[in-house]
Computed example of a mutant assay.
Amino acid sequence: MSDYIIETSGLTKSFKGFTAVNGVDLRIRRGAIHALIGPNGAGKTTCFNLITKFLEPSEGRILYKGEDITRMKPADIARLGMVRSFQISATFPHLTVLENVRVALQRPLGTAFFFWRSETSLDGLNDRAMQLLDEVGLAEFAGAQAASLSYGRKRALELATTVALDPEVLLLDEPTSGMGREDIERITSLIKRVAVNRTILMVEHNLSVVSELSDRITVLARGQILAEGSYLEVSSNPEVVDAYMGSGHA
């Protein structure tokens, strides 16, 4: 078994003559927290969308646990155990916090999203749902509508629902975007917790979050890999300082 759970080879995406991602070879080690960073326009979001199959590559291959997933659909990728969150919180606003987690918990039972079933048929999921809410600090909000939560707590709920799907690989798109310091600290702590026995690939602008969480960092610039390594290694790389840290983008 390979040490790498996700591998890309020559990953390329062109849009009408503009190459957003150009020949990217990524290797994401099992059990690691791997960050993808770079200045605006570096291609990191496009690369992220290619790996999660929300975009089709122009060239190259994507392997997941050694299997070629280059032409698979996003739903098929999720069934294999690779689940992504989005930069914009994706919850059901008019369901309660508890109900949001219960919906996610249905998938492994083979009853996913059977909204017409009696509500009592889902009561067996309550204990696990409450456990997940407790883990993300939302147990006291279980009966509240998701729409009533603060932004930071909505992101915590999204993490709970994502973890409820029991992913092997969790892909996080700007998990602390738009948050104040207190919420950033809460989400950073949550990510550490859910990373146990999982692999995480994240796109993140906040360098303090990157430095605290990441085992390995890939820096993109102009659609290509500029540097890879630990935070100490990439932050002291003159090319990275010039292209990323010196650009004024945090």
Rank of each mutant, 00 (worst) to 15 (best):
T162S: 10
G41I: 03
L26I: 13
V83P: 01
N126M: 05
G246W: 08
F86Q: 03
A164E: 05
T162C: 09
G180Y: 12
S2Q: 09
L98F: 06
N206R: 13
L232W: 03
V196H: 14
N126S: 14
D166I: 11
P39F: 03
R29D: 01
P167D: 09
V103E: 00
N197W: 05
I6M: 01
A156V: 11
A221V: 13
F113S: 14
L171C: 15
M1L: 08
L125N: 06
Y231K: 01
L170Q: 03
M245L: 15
L55P: 02
E59S: 11
L63Q: 01
P238E: 11
V203H: 02
L55I: 04
G143E: 10
E67Q: 11
D127C: 03
G43Q: 03
V136P: 06
S150Y: 08
V169L: 06
P57T: 10
D183M: 05
L132H: 07
N237C: 07
E233K: 10
K44R: 13
E158Y: 07
T188L: 07
Q106D: 05
A147Y: 06
E204C: 08
N49T: 10
P57L: 03
G23H: 06
N197E: 15
S177H: 08
F141C: 08
F54L: 12
G38N: 04
L149P: 12
C47R: 00
P238V: 11
M202I: 07
S177C: 10
E67A: 10
I217V: 15
E140S: 13
P175D: 06
T199V: 08
L159M: 14
R102N: 04
N197F: 05
G43K: 00
G137V: 12
T176V: 15
E119I: 15
I184D: 00
I69M: 02
T120M: 08
H249G: 01
K44T: 09
H249D: 10
I5T: 08
S148F: 09
V103Y: 01
L50A: 04
S177Y: 11
A142C: 04
K16E: 09
F141T: 05
A32M: 09
E59H: 12
S230P: 09
P167Q: 11
L165R: 13
T12W: 04
G81I: 03
T8H: 09
G41M: 01
V203W: 01
E99Y: 07
Q131M: 11
P167A: 13
Q145N: 12
D183V: 09
K65N: 12
I69Y: 00
A90W: 02
F115M: 11
S9T: 14
